[in-house]
Simulated assay, not measured.
Amino acid sequence: MLQDKDIVNDYLNGLNASLKSYAGYISEANNPGLRQTLINLRNGDESRQRTVYSYATQHGFYKPPQTATQQEIQQVQSELSAGQ
């Protein structure tokens, strides 16, 4: 029998996979209506992903990686800015 943790993690993995796919579909959509529909679907999945992620972390089903320090954040921002 599946445990709550397994169900939540499976759903979270599915949402994460669909979010990765939307970027490609949206960028290749020529029809404005289709493009907007895909954007709306992606936005809904992003909202669901955040809700499930919060639930998983609150219940100990998912342990996020260590939080980046302010110095690490600034370093990444500098590197990304330099590449533009």
Rank of each mutant, 00 (worst) to 15 (best):
L38P: 01
Y22K: 01
A23M: 06
Q49V: 00
N43S: 12
N43F: 08
K63Y: 03
V76Y: 15
T67G: 10
G44T: 07
N13M: 11
V52N: 00
A68S: 15
G44Q: 06
Y53F: 11
S81G: 01
D45M: 03
Q49L: 06
N30Q: 08
H59F: 04
K20W: 05
L15H: 00
N9K: 02
E28V: 04
E28D: 11
I39M: 13
Y55C: 02
T51F: 05
N43H: 12
G14L: 10
S27M: 08
N9A: 06
Q58G: 09
N40I: 01
L41N: 06
K63L: 10
E79I: 00
G24R: 07
S21K: 12
A29R: 02
S18R: 11
M1I: 04
T69H: 14
P65Q: 14
T67S: 15
R48Q: 02
Y55I: 04
S78D: 14
P32F: 06
Y22I: 02
S54G: 05
G44C: 10
N13G: 13
N30E: 09
N16D: 13
T67Q: 15
Q36K: 12
L34F: 15
L2F: 14
L34M: 14
D4A: 10
L15K: 01
S54W: 04
Q58W: 01
Y62R: 02
L2C: 04
K63D: 06
K5H: 08
L19M: 09
F61Y: 07
S54A: 09
S81I: 05
Q84K: 07
L38K: 00
R48C: 01
N31W: 11
H59P: 00
Q70H: 11
Q77R: 11
A82S: 08
V52I: 12
S81K: 06
E79A: 03
A29Q: 03
E79P: 03
Q49S: 07
L34V: 08
S27C: 07
Q49F: 07
G83A: 11
N9I: 03
Q66Y: 13
Q75Y: 11
Q77I: 05
R50Q: 12
Q70R: 08
G24E: 06
D10V: 08
L2K: 10
